[in-house]
Design a protein around this nucleic acid. Structure first.
Lengths: 158, 158
DNA sequence: TTGAGGAATTAACCTGGGTTAAAAACCGTG
DNA sequence: CACGGTTTTTAACCCAGGTTAATTCCTCAA
């Protein structure tokens, strides 16, 4: 709860699998604005590809929103092992396919939908989230400010 | 040139590798608005994960902007083969890692940057694109209208 | 060379969401 | 219960970008 798994700018060499709890991954801009990349729920996996694969530092921070149990996997070891272990490799393929599809959906929403539509879809698809996350964070996930989200809500309720 | 590789709503079972040429992948909304998901350059790979992996129909269309040579790969066969062939599987892992990183960057740009910043970065990172793609399409890739982009340009040149 | 169709620009007006700041509602803790 | 901090709402004002439509530019085929 409130603990960081890793922070922006850090070298990260692991992937994580969420057993229980809730995390948020977010970008912090130069002027201190927070943009939430994703919430990570039990069963989801998370990691900074850029950091662990391309050897850069992480572009975002990962922090627990609720008490969380994680399984940590050393990326490089996994990657090397996958070179010769077909079963492991195909598990990784599944992991990456799931990852890619999540990203594809998010990209679609950010590119094609208005903030209001994204909000409606979030209610539709992940209502649990609203029980555990402040409206502030919901807004920053939708790509708008808390004030903006409050306005959308009142607009929706006529 | 102008030929469709596949269109939105179609069942797609292949991935593609671009040998030469240029394509665009785009979403068409109910009210006829086009939003460009990505431009695909030589060396890039493209496919609808949702369609070929999850068995849904494609959420976007893929069309050639310039005469293009493609290598087509049947997804299911590839996926099955990868289950037992470590070398193949690890090639797929690399493919998916590259795919994931591209998506991650795009997500960041859409979530955190203004249209003007995205435009500046595009000039910076992919100037070639401007030789082959209309400004209309650049705008639709940036997530704004052609009118909006024209304004940004004049704003930048004081 | 001209004319026609598409691409880009410009202008006028509108709207969604940003910004700032204050007020109100909601906590948990002593 | 009251206090102090955090969330949420509300209000006033602002701006980026959307919309529509007219104008200019470009290109290319006849």
């Amino acid at each position: 709860m409130g603990e960081y798994v890793f922070t922006q700018g850090e070298e990260v060499s692991s992937l994580y699998l969420v057993k229980s709890g809730l995390l948020k991954a977010y970008y912090l801009s130069d002027d201190g604005k927070e943009n939430i990349k994703s919430f990570i729920l039990p069963g989801d996996n998370i990691g900074s590809l850029m950091a662990s694969y391309a050897g850069k530092t992480s572009t975002f921070s990962l922090v627990c929103v609720k008490p969380t149990e994680l399984i940590q996997v050393e990326f490089k070891a996994l990657y090397e092992a996958s070179r010769t272990d077909a079963e492991l490799s195909s598990a990784i393929v599944d992991f990456l396919l799931a990852f890619g599809m999540k990203k594809e959906i998010r990209e679609y929403e950010l590119l094609c939908l208005s903030a209001e539509e994204r909000y409606r879809r979030l209610i539709e698809n992940t209502p649990e989230l609203f029980d555990h996350v402040t409206q502030n964070d919901i807004a920053r996930y939708l790509g708008i400010t808390p004030v903006g989200l409050s306005r959308i809500k009142t607009r929706i309720n006529n």
